[in-house]
């Protein structure tokens, strides 16, 4: 045991330096705050290597709920925000946190439920009517409850269905305050209905008895938008690199990369950028 105090200190400082060094290795990167659906579905895993090969820019994705992702942008902790809640995004731009919002792609929400289907909604194309039946049957419903894009869409759909949650929600309506994945895990565990984005559902593995019960309603449309965090608000934002990413993902090449991402032959996202803007 011939180690001395000095050698311990040397080892300690070595460990620290070692741990810090790789972080500084590549400085050509941007931070994109995005949603769990884009990450968990594997979309980024598919398109980012293509973008990196072309530009050399590393995209670091921080996956959060839409509300949190927007907040991350608002605080200046991301260069680009890529989320799915049109109303909140337009407010983000209106508040001056981004100079411009571009629509990138869409997919749709699906209503997931247990195969036993206690509210008898399976096969319907009417999301509003189905939600009404669930509320009437007091069948278990798992809500994200986390101010995410999906949560915002769900609350909008309850309003469309003329259900006043504040008044009507009972023990059957369970707000989890979780991301999409954990919410699906929980729904699988308690055989609850749950609103999910199709991409996450398709790549979700722990389905247990859950299946799609309602899909195809126009009102289940789920639009994704991308925004550069305003360099005028946060001077450190990597404006050029961020804009390069936004320009690429809305270019024919980027749009094709999105369309090409499939699971089991099924596209998860459908590119729909139009130059005219929204």
């Amino acid at each position: 045991m011939k180690f001395t105090r000095r050698s311990l200190l040397v080892a300690a400082s070595l460990a620290v330096t070692l741990a810090l060094s790789p972080a500084q290795a590549q400085d050509k990167f941007i931070v994109v705050s995005s949603t769990t659906s884009t990450q968990d579905s594997g979309l980024f895993g598919h398109i980012l290597p293509i973008f990196k090969a072309k530009t050399g820019i590393d995209v670091r994705v921080v996956a959060q709920g839409t509300g949190q992702a927007l907040d991350t942008g608002r605080r200046g902790d991301a260069d680009v925000v890529f989320v799915h809640d049109k109303v909140a995004e337009e407010k983000f731009v209106a508040d001056g946190f981004s100079p411009e919002r571009r629509e990138v792609m869409y997919n749709d929400f699906v209503l997931i439920g247990p195969k036993s289907d206690p509210a008898k909604v399976a096969g319907s194309k009417d999301i509003a009517g189905s939600l009404k039946k669930i509320a009437e049957a007091k069948a278990p419903f798992a809500s994200r409850g986390d101010k995410s894009g999906t949560h915002a869409a769900e609350l909008r759909l309850w309003r469309v269905a003329a259900i006043d949650l504040e008044k009507d929600k009972g023990t059957w309506y369970r707000e989890l305050g979780q991301g999409m994945g954990p919410t699906l895990n929980t729904a699988a565990g308690m055989n609850a209905y749950v609103l999910a984005d199709r991409a996450t559902w398709l790549s979700f593995k722990n389905r247990a008895d859950l299946t799609i019960v309602v899909e195809g309603d126009q009102r289940l449309f789920n639009q994704y938008g991308i925004m550069l965090v305003n360099p005028a608000k946060h001077a450190h934002v990597k404006k050029d690199l961020g804009q390069t990413f936004i320009d690429w993902i809305t270019s024919p090449e980027g749009q094709k990369a999105i369309a090409d991402y499939k699971i089991g032959g099924e596209s998860l996202f459908f590119p729909n950028f139009r130059k005219a803007g929204t």
């Binding site: 670091r60 921080v62 605080r75 200046g76 902790d77 450190h236």
Partner: peptide
């Protein structure tokens, strides 16, 4: 956080 006191260091979301 960039909006926090140590924001200028740019350390958030790094090892």
């Amino acid at each position: 956080s960039r909006s926090g006191p140590l924001g200028p260091l740019g350390l958030l979301f790094t090892p």
